[in-house]
Amino acid sequence: MSSAGQAQAALSLLRLGGRDTLGPNAGALGRVNGLDWSLGPGLHAVVGAPADGTAALAGLLAGEYPPESGEVRLRGARPFDDATCRARIGALLPKTRLFGRTVSDVVSLARAANGGADPLSPLGLEALAARTVSSLSVGEARALELALALSHPEPWLLVFYEPWSLVAGVETAALREALLRRATDTPIALLVSAPSDVATLAETVHLLDAGRWAAADGGRGWCARAARNLVLVLDDRDGVAARGMAQALSDHVLDARAISWSRLDDDPMASVVTVAANDLEAAAIVLVRLCAERAVTVRSISTPLIERDTLLAMVRSPHAEVRG
């Protein structure tokens, strides 16, 4: 599956391949291969296990790991190579690596580097301020990283790996509210292993399986928060028409949040293009015009909303079933 671009995309993955170093002897626990992804402001979820590459993807997005192939482009810069770009990324990563003797030291370093307000108060973590870093539990250390990421004054990208797991002292509701607030002007990547964590929150959801996109909104995937997706099923034997449509849409649908395409698993003669946009009517008009210009045969246009239980059943079923 491939994902095409988005107008005003802040973050683009181009055939990205890479791995984490979380396995034994700094080997790979998971890796990603040939991922294409474009996203703009909003909440974008990636569902998968660490071994499927979610941990690797988090590190690659934040600039911790270098890509082995392809690239990550954040507003034109590569996070791993560019300190200025990294300064604009807030991240909660799989492995907490805090530097400083006390929590205040960590906060001071982050604020000296990036500016920003007090990160602890908004999430009710003031009690951590007086603690030494070595005294923090894993959950508290993750909570501190989460708070630092959320308090970034002008982020280009926020990356959260399992923000609902092993995070101590942070209210779920407060976190959801904070994420939604930041999502209005910032791309946020949520990497989780449980679809229920993001089913009613994320605007787009991708399923990562063995390092590749296995499903995404509208493909064999699901519609996430609100039915703001248009799903177009095309007569398309080899995916060329769908890919071309996705690229054209990225140029013409100005408020698109994400555009993706995929082959329809149970019909080799069809492909699916999914558009997530704020103004679906405008997007539909553009879509129909482009179909007419390109002489593409459209089988259906819909705005599906798959029930949460169906989604859970899909993701919990064996991978072969999800991928068809």
């Binding site: 170093t21 700094a26 934040a62 600039g63 911790e64 270098p66 300190a83 200025t84 770009c85 990294r86 300064a87 604009r88 990324i89 991240a91 690596r97 805090l98 530097f99 370093l109 982050a110 580097a113 990036n114």
Partner: peptide, 18 residues
């Protein structure tokens, strides 16, 4: 006992030069 680049991450993550 890691690579030099990885060793700088706790500070470099905030946008400071490796």
């Amino acid at each position: 006992r890691a690579g030099l680049s990885a060793a700088t991450w706790p500070v470099a993550r905030f946008g400071l030069s490796r």
